[in-house]
Nucleic acid binder design. Structure first.
Length: 162
DNA sequence: CCTCCGTAGCGCCCCCTGCTGGG
DNA sequence: CCCAGCAGGGGGCGCTACGGAGG
């Protein structure tokens, strides 16, 4: 149990609601319900495609201000606030740093239910599961084809030089 | 009280790369 | 030797949840 304190009664009232299942703000398009009108508005924007937060440096736009800040760090400011204490790696998002740290610790929290394989991140496990279903995704195949073309190109180029 | 903003967190997907085993 | 399959490391975005604080 984490103690929550705040300077305002109104914020405490709001916080107390987070302990209930109360979600009075319902989306009329999909039926999903939210605690606050702001969350509902953001959600509705994902239905309508409304993206109020425009990037000043490119054509991208986002539903929330936080997404815009993150985008600008990735693409424009290159600010990486989360530094690895064991190497020079730094990242825009703390979740990426956590994923990176697992490559130092060797931790593999995501266990395959069908074999002994365990992954350091959720998506790698999901990708691995395709090997059990016998399905290779079209995107993987596209990647293979691109690499194949590059290999052929490189080979032809070397052949030409030699 | 309403609302905006910043932050945290989980998820999804992609790219590039190295390794490996079979043809 | 070549190539396809697979896993590792990392970049980027989608979306929800929550708390601080200004109006």
């Amino acid at each position: 149990m984490i103690d929550y304190t705040c300077p305002r009664r109104s914020n405490l009232d709001r916080h107390m609601k987070s302990h209930t299942d109360e979600r009075p703000h319902k989306c009329h398009l999909c039926g999903r319900a939210f605690r606050t009108v702001t969350l509902l508005r953001n959600h509705l924007n994902t239905h309508t495609g409304t993206r109020p937060h425009k990037c000043p440096d490119c054509d991208m736009a986002f539903v929330t201000s936080g997404e815009l800040v993150r985008h600008r760090r990735y693409k424009h400011t290159h600010e990486k606030p989360f530094k690895c204490s064991m190497c020079d790696y730094a990242s825009v998002e703390v979740s990426k740093l956590k994923r990176h740290i697992r490559s130092h610790t060797g931790e593999r929290p995501f266990q395959c239910s069908l074999c002994s394989y365990a992954s350091r991140d959720t998506y790698k496990l999901k990708r691995h599961m395709r090997t059990h279903s016998g399905r290779t995704s079209p995107l993987t195949l596209l990647g293979r084809f691109k690499r194949h073309c590059l290999q052929v190109e490189k080979r032809d180029l070397l052949g030409f030089v030699i």
